Amino acid sequence: MNIMIVGVGGQGTLLASRIIGNVVVDAGYDVKLSEVHGMSQRGGSVVTYVKYSDKVYSPIVDKGEADIILAFEMLEAYRALPYLKIGGHIISNTQEINPMPVITGAMEYPKDIDKKLAKVANTTFVDAKSLAKEAGNIKAVNVVLLGVMAKKMDISYDKWIEAIKTTVPAKLLDVNLKAFELGYNSK
């Protein structure tokens, strides 16, 4: 299974990859993670790869190999589309975060990304920011999206909860558990 996690700096892609890594190791798989930080400190693109199977040799997901693209922002989902394999699935937050060229007025944010993605790929869109806010912290968007993705994977709900408990800092645990539950029970 090849998972590509995409977002912008500060959205928690690295924490999400660690949670996935912990849950699949607990489920008995070999796992490899690879983090491509980019300009994360300035709100730039961040990409994380998670690969798991009986035996994994490389942590990199090449174009056309991602079973799942987990996108924390719409434009990042669109940018990652070439990595999705035929029959793969995109799970995307509906949030739009303007990149620097849009902020400076050099470009416009692309219109109708959701419609463009839905035309060419299996897609699930979720207002993860609203669900994270309902959970108590808008920074829990990442864990909301993990909840949505968990329904599409053959790993038990209890294993996901245990992975969150062992990965998320104690002071943020209750919010993240609620965020996961809200994502898992959405749509």
Rank of each mutant, 00 (worst) to 15 (best):
A77S: 03
D154Y: 11
P169I: 11
K152C: 03
L117I: 08
D158Y: 12
F125K: 03
K129Q: 13
T166V: 15
Y78E: 15
I68H: 14
E65C: 03
Q95R: 15
K151P: 07
D158S: 15
M107Q: 03
A140K: 06
L182C: 06
D158F: 11
T94N: 02
Y78F: 15
K115N: 06
T167I: 12
I113S: 04
E181Q: 07
S130I: 02
D154S: 08
H89P: 00
G136R: 14
P82L: 01
I91E: 09
G147W: 09
V143S: 03
L84I: 00
E73F: 01
H89R: 13
A179H: 08
K119W: 10
Y57L: 11
N93G: 03
L182M: 08
D127Y: 10
V126I: 13
N93T: 07
L146H: 02
A140Y: 10
D62S: 12
T166C: 02
A150V: 08
G64T: 09
S156Y: 11
E162Y: 11
L173R: 08
L177Y: 04
T124F: 07
A77E: 10
K129E: 14
E134A: 12
V175W: 07
A140L: 03
N122F: 10
K115C: 01
T94Y: 13
N142W: 12
A77M: 06
N137L: 01
P99K: 02
E108Y: 13
K151L: 06
G105E: 11
L117M: 12
A163D: 13
E65M: 13
L70D: 06
L131N: 06
R79N: 07
D158I: 01
I91Q: 04
D174Y: 03
E108W: 11
K85R: 14
A66G: 03
V126T: 15
L145V: 05
G87F: 05
L173P: 05
V126K: 02
E96S: 04
T166G: 01
I97R: 09
Y78T: 00
E96V: 02
N122T: 13
I60K: 10
L145A: 06
D127S: 00
M107D: 07
I97K: 06
Y109L: 00
V148Y: 11
I113K: 01
M153K: 01
R79M: 00
L81A: 07
E181P: 01
G105A: 05
G136P: 00
A128F: 04
P99I: 04
L177Q: 13
A121W: 05
A135T: 09
A132S: 09
L70V: 07
P110G: 06
K165V: 07
L172H: 14
Y109G: 02
T104P: 05
E76K: 10
G136E: 12
G105P: 02
K159R: 13
G183N: 12
L75F: 13
M107T: 01
I164D: 14
A163F: 10
L146F: 10
A150C: 08
P82Q: 01
A71M: 12
A163W: 10
E76L: 04
G105M: 01
L177I: 13
K116W: 14
D112N: 12
K151R: 15
E181I: 00
D62T: 15
I68Q: 01
N137T: 06
A71L: 03
V141Y: 11
A106I: 02
I86R: 12
H89D: 12
